[in-house]
Design a protein around this nucleic acid. Structure first.
Lengths: 244, 244
DNA sequence: CGAATCGTTGATTCAACTCAACGCGAGTGG
DNA sequence: CCACTCGCGTTGAGTTGAATCAACGATTCG
């Protein structure tokens, strides 16, 4: 069981999406909440599994991916602290993709069945979670456009911009500096490129003085420049100051 | 106002996603419903618009797309009869993409605000629509993988398989023959390829006796063969016989 | 009949992939 | 404490799948 601080954190995270009514808050508090931890590269869920729980990412990074027939892998989402990892499975009984930890990770789990029941019974909760799943779909659309229609340089820059802004919006840190705990192989799998080409692309962004790198963290040295080569606008993230 | 037959159709479509309770059904019937038609290439909604209505596709084809900075376009979804075109905007005030008619199209419109209110008040309705938005997100994930990790041949075949199965699942027709009312330019924009390359790829699929084409319709002459080169499995469509 | 749109085809170019080697730092075990 | 390994990043050389450029048919429509 998770303690009161975790509960409070969860409540804040959900309320960040849409305000919770009193009874929604109460119902949420009545749900049992379990903390779970995962090692890097450990699976939270596999394609074909029928998840019993939904998880909120308390700390660390996780990613979701699909394997295609020729052995390739496509990463379809990257989650950071505060993300609801499992929205996409909440009403679909069988998972269509894998969820894996990128770093040491802590998640808060709620029974899927209970969460569905409580959400459907409490409109403010349903609104928050439903909205979250729509937001994720919006991000996915942008990824399709990114992978389908931007070249490697722009595409890579775009992902960096997105992660920077999402981190900022989640209150984890400023857009100018963030951890990116992924190998270049994984970055390639997220962007539909090869590790070798990711390497060249990152070096080119660095050479253009747009970013600096050290180990697995990135500093944005020229935000506007990066945004420009990325063709990035944050509309699709539906941030609260713009859209509510 | 739409007539009783349209209402009944709509009810069937929603119930196809998840069973509707009696009071959900009643509440749905109380909503005012408007029929609207669109010409080919007419916009249903533009990026940046704040939609007032949600639309269900009564007949015809529509597609949704994003424009990227270099002038490129990426089609992120294709909808056929029975699809809920606007789920993705139901809880996000500003649209992050364009929705456009592919053919002559008829849609049934419901006030967005009303639909949200009624859904949140009636769990069975919320479940059906929420599930639909998750299903769309699942399709989007597969598109990311398709565009990111499959070559032109496999990628194109995959989209054909998807459309065939979706048409079959929607009860519009068999998987072996379907309309594909898109130019090769549009197909390219959906698959992250150029029109010229789409042309060559389609001809190659035809030369391999997997499909036959005439005008804007496709016949699948070798379903298993097509499915094999497409690396297609229908799991991500979460069809009712497999997953409910 | 002319104009426009879309499909088809060939020739050429290029962005990203493949293959291969090497460097480097973090463990690990003798 | 050093030698060894292993995973990851880096770099170069050569290849290729898809893009680009350009022209020409076919079909539709006013």
């Amino acid at each position: 069981m998770a303690d009161a601080a975790e509960r409070e954190w969860l409540e804040r995270q959900i309320a960040r999406r849409a305000p919770l009514s009193n009874d929604g808050q109460m119902a949420l508090r009545a749900l049992s909440l379990v903390t779970r931890t995962y090692e890097p590269s450990q699976y939270l869920l596999r394609e074909g599994d029928r998840p019993k729980h939904c998880s909120f990412l308390r700390s660390g990074f996780v990613y979701r991916h699909k394997i295609v027939g020729n052995g390739g892998r496509q990463i379809v989402a990257i989650h950071l602290e505060g993300d609801f990892v499992d929205v996409q499975n909440i009403l679909l009984t069988e998972s269509d993709h894998n969820i894996q930890a990128l770093t040491m990770t802590k998640v808060l789990c709620i029974s899927r069945e209970d969460l569905v029941a409580v959400s459907l019974a409490h409109p403010s909760l349903a609104r928050a979670l439903w909205r979250e799943s729509l937001l994720e779909a919006s991000i996915m659309r942008e990824w399709v456009a990114n992978v389908g229609r931007r070249d490697a340089r722009s595409r890579t820059a775009h992902m960096l911009c997105e992660l920077a802004i999402r981190q900022e919006a989640a209150g984890i840190g400023p857009r100018e500096a963030f951890d990116l705990p992924m190998t270049q192989e994984q970055l390639g799998d997220a962007l539909g490129l090869t590790a070798v080409h990711i390497n060249r692309t990152l070096k080119s962004l660095e050479a253009a003085a747009l970013i600096a790198r050290s180990k697995r963290s990135v500093t944005v040295t020229d935000w506007h420049g990066l945004q420009r080569v990325a063709d990035f606008t944050s509309g699709y993230l539906h941030l609260p100051d713009v859209d509510h």
